[in-house]
């Protein structure tokens, strides 16, 4: 079954649309909270830590950075697993690089009245650790180096100034009826590749910090600047560790970022 990924900095509105859509499609709804709860339970990590990291605007520059990045990676891995599982509607601001590459994931951007953001900010007085709208966009940009509200990143952009939540939901459901969003062997394979890549990344991020992992039919490609300092030994250790993971049959380690990441050879 297909996947609906709803991305928005307007948490309240987008989660309402997600709820509506999931109910109508009979898909499983996964919100950021659900994701955190599931990950906390499965990986035996305090829920508070995971929640904290999704609200931490300083995670890319602080002490324990690698630890925090690992938590993000864990969440991404969990999201990947959930997506591979069955038809889901995901609503949140995490994991864009995962569903970006899946042809059967309908990526939706929700825009809303910025005024509603103010009320959310007022709410955040009660819950001081909750990110504001702009905070969410900032988090997204810092971690994925992309503008969250760039329409080019999405299949569908819905503006809640022009429609209400049920209309938006209908549009999403109708769009999803298009055959182009049906899963197939190729896209399911992509999904598997992504899941394995996420798994490998999670195992590496604490050691290497910034690391990018791609996978293709059991072949793992690791890109990290950390190899520049550590040299061959570190790369060899990493290689050996990854080779031990199930499903991996070959590992390539690079110092540079993937040059043409939109190409799938």
């Amino acid at each position: 079954m297909s996947i609906v990924a709803i991305v928005s900095k307007y948490a309240d509105e987008s989660s309402k649309i997600a709820e509506f859509t999931a109910l109508r499609l009979g898909y499983r709804l996964v919100t950021m909270d659900d994701l955190i709860k599931t990950a906390a339970k499965d990986y035996n990590i305090p829920e508070k830590d995971l929640a904290q990291v999704t609200r931490d605007l300083t995670l890319w520059q602080h002490l324990f950075r690698k630890k925090k990045l690992k938590l993000v990676s864990l969440l991404e891995h969990k999201l990947c697993e959930l997506m591979a599982d069955d038809g889901i509607v995901f609503c949140g601001y995490l994991g864009y690089p995962i569903f970006k590459e899946i042809s059967h994931a309908l990526k939706v951007l929700i825009l809303a009245d910025p005024q509603t953001g103010k009320s959310a900010a007022a709410d955040s007085a009660k819950q001081p650790d909750l990110l504001s709208n702009d905070g969410i966009a900032g988090w997204f940009e810092k971690i994925y180096q992309m503008d969250m509200e760039d329409p080019k990143l999405y299949d569908l952009t819905l503006n809640l100034l022009q429609m209400d939540i049920s209309e938006a939901g209908d549009i999403i459901i109708n769009t999803l009826k298009q055959k182009r969003f049906e899963p197939m062997t190729y896209s399911m394979n992509c999904m598997c590749n992504l899941e394995l890549a996420c798994q490998v990344k999670t195992s590496l991020v604490e050691r290497l910090g910034d690391v990018e992992v791609k996978s293709h039919d059991g072949t793992i490609y690791v890109y990290s600047k950390a190899f520049k300092k550590g040299g061959r030994k570190a790369a060899k250790e990493v290689k050996e560790d990854i080779m031990r993971m199930p499903g991996v049959n070959y590992v390539e380690v690079y110092r540079e970022r993937a040059p043409f990441d939109e190409i799938h050879i």
């Binding site: 042809s103 182009r180 197939m184 062997t185 190729y186 896209s187």
Partner: peptide, 27 residues
């Protein structure tokens, strides 16, 4: 030359499935 866009185009045009080269005969 498998890409997400090609996959979507194929599906939209009514393909049953798509598989990327190189593939195993068993697949």
């Amino acid at each position: 030359f498998a890409t997400a866009n090609l996959a979507r185009e194929a599906m939209e045009k009514g393909a049953y499935d798509m598989i990327a080269k190189p593939f195993k005969p068993a697949d």
